[in-house]
Simulated assay, not measured.
Amino acid sequence: MITNFRHIGLVVQDLEASLHFWCDIMGFTVSRRMDEAGPHIDAIMELEDVKVTTVKLAAPDGNLIELLKFTSHPDKPAWTGGPTSTGLTHMAFTVDDLNATCAKLKEHGVRMHCDIQTSPDGMAKLVYCTGPEGLVLELVEMAAP
């Protein structure tokens, strides 16, 4: 049935700040940017007169995040769920050097939820942090085999 994972869509309030975070800090690249409007978008969103800028961002492994900035409809307040809330709780990324990644993120004002933790089996080091607009990210460095 499913042939592959396509992307995760994130509605953002500040597109330029989000692009800075995902591209300049996290290392994603813009693979496509479009201003979208018309009957097809209205139908998909179940709204009228939608105007949205969409930006597909590619991770080094090719997986995608899609940022959506609506210019036609007011933003909803930032997602305020937590790790036990129903729905999207966090996005996890594998990194090659967790210490360096955390240091870089801290330089850019990203809040770490705790010090780096090691899994009980010793196979991974990980940490949660809060990214743009309150999005929780899990960063994982796997132990060498």
Rank of each mutant, 00 (worst) to 15 (best):
T3R: 15
L126R: 02
A144T: 13
Q13Y: 03
L68Q: 07
G122V: 04
I2H: 08
Q117G: 01
A17E: 14
P132N: 08
T53P: 01
H108N: 15
K69L: 09
P132K: 02
L15V: 09
H73M: 04
E141S: 03
G81K: 13
M1R: 13
D35S: 09
P120D: 13
A92P: 07
H108C: 04
P132H: 08
K69C: 06
K56F: 14
L57N: 00
A78E: 10
I65W: 07
E141D: 06
T80F: 05
G82Y: 10
P60Y: 05
I8G: 04
D24P: 00
I2E: 00
T89G: 15
L135S: 02
E48V: 04
H20E: 15
D35C: 04
A100R: 13
V11H: 03
H113Y: 05
L47W: 09
T89W: 02
I116Y: 03
N63W: 06
H20N: 15
R111W: 09
H108R: 04
D75R: 13
M91S: 10
A143I: 00
T84I: 13
D49W: 06
A78Y: 13
T84D: 15
D97N: 14
H40R: 10
H7D: 14
I2Y: 12
K56I: 06
D42W: 04
N4C: 15
G62F: 08
C23E: 09
C114T: 12
V52D: 01
H40Q: 10
A59N: 02
H7M: 01
Y128K: 04
V127E: 01
S85K: 10
T101F: 05
